[in-house]
Amino acid sequence: MTLSMLATLGAALSLLIGSGFVIVGVIGLLKFNDPMTRLHAPTKVGTLGIGMLLLASILNAMAAGDPSMHELLIMAFLFVTAPVSANFIAKVSIHKRTCEAPPKPLKDGTWSTLDAPKDE
């Protein structure tokens, strides 16, 4: 078995693992029954699923004899931005009071996102 065949096999396995994570995350998004638990499932799609697909792309380019590392840029961008957008969506859930409220902070009376004027 040559190195190029090994890289193709790795790319195929990465594709299968990535699509497994994608399908599990989306089923979790559909099946869970609480906004905060629904939030946790699709983050696996964003990091592990797409990360595995990008790894498959790197391995496939390597097997074709034309290695490229462009995909690492997308991976780094996704890994940095996925927690930020998840944090914003969690803050929307807290602000709209569609989830269980977090415990009170130690110093202030309430969380700033819950401290909105009542007439909004």
Partner: peptide, 20 residues
């Protein structure tokens, strides 16, 4: 509304995977 934003975000990420 948070679920709708989350679903849109997941759809964008799935479209990204389709492109890849």
């Amino acid at each position: 509304t948070g679920d709708r934003i989350l679903a849109l975000d997941t759809m964008v990420i799935n479209a990204l995977g389709l492109i890849i």
